[in-house]
Design a protein around this nucleic acid. Structure first.
Lengths: 140, 140
DNA sequence: AATAGGTAATTAATATATTACTAATATCAA
DNA sequence: TTGATATTAGTAATATATTAATTACCTATT
């Protein structure tokens, strides 16, 4: 059988862990989890979204998202409202407080990204991103 | 700021998710979680290991590993013993039952791997693995 | 021998992941 | 319009992730 270290899922996990070492301290300083930041970032990029679309974009399952949103709402970062057309749907958006947080943090996140690129190389990053995107779209 | 979808951690997550679609059904049929299988696989490859080394190889933190081992032990798949030289260390090994499970499953896992390669291409997989391994070794 | 400092594993507390299930609403065919 | 079916969000239960704190043991120094 394939060697243990030659498992693609394991290497994807390790690569992600190594990458997050560049960003985690910054998030941690601001009392944000990875997932919370992912949600804030998606909402900032798309203004507002239904819960389901948000989950898809953030690669989260809806029970996870429910809890994440509950805590983000408690901290005053997001608000929910029901869709007019379809009462099943919830629409999520950022508060002003969240927009301020985002604008304060985003330059630092970009700086971390820059530090990452200096260690890894921009060319390799672009190649890697291409391969990952192709892989993401694969279906069994 | 960088586009939301151009986040490397997000793409690593999505790529891993897409990859796991090829393997998860098989594990699920056998009532194993990803993490449990990762631990079994590492122990099969290295015969026995201290808890700390096992955690490192599997990319798990020790509190997670504690719970995973507890459940694997309850199901009769692993056994623990204290190290003779250093009473702080625990040495983990597979039971016969686990070795049998592993030998029964590994051909099916390899078959899933083959199915994956047919959809993604072996050449790309090798290139991707190289880039991931290099990334894994990166330090901030 | 006694103590200070370090390490390995675990526990505690909280956040998230995963699967199964439920409640409410929407859609569509009969 | 009703009744079967599908969809969305959420709940419940269990497994794992994460950080902090604890316990037991080791090591070196005094």
């Amino acid at each position: 059988m394939r060697k243990f270290e030659d498992s693609l899922p394991l290497q994807l996990l390790k690569a992600r862990e190594a990458t997050m070492l560049f960003f985690r301290p910054l998030l941690h300083e601001n009392s944000l989890t990875e997932q919370q930041w992912r949600v804030l970032r998606a909402l900032y990029a798309y203004n507002e979204m239904e819960s389901k679309e948000l989950a898809n974009r953030c690669c989260l399952l809806s029970p996870s998202l429910t809890g994440i949103l509950k805590r983000l709402q408690q901290q005053g970062y997001v608000q929910r409202r029901k869709s007019e057309e379809d009462q099943r749907r919830t629409i999520i958006s950022l508060t002003d407080k969240a927009n301020e947080l985002f604008q304060r943090l985003s330059p630092e996140v970009e700086a971390s990204y820059k530090a990452f690129i200096e260690r890894y190389s921009e060319k390799k990053l672009n190649e890697l991103m291409e391969m990952l995107k192709e892989l993401s779209e694969l279906e069994p």
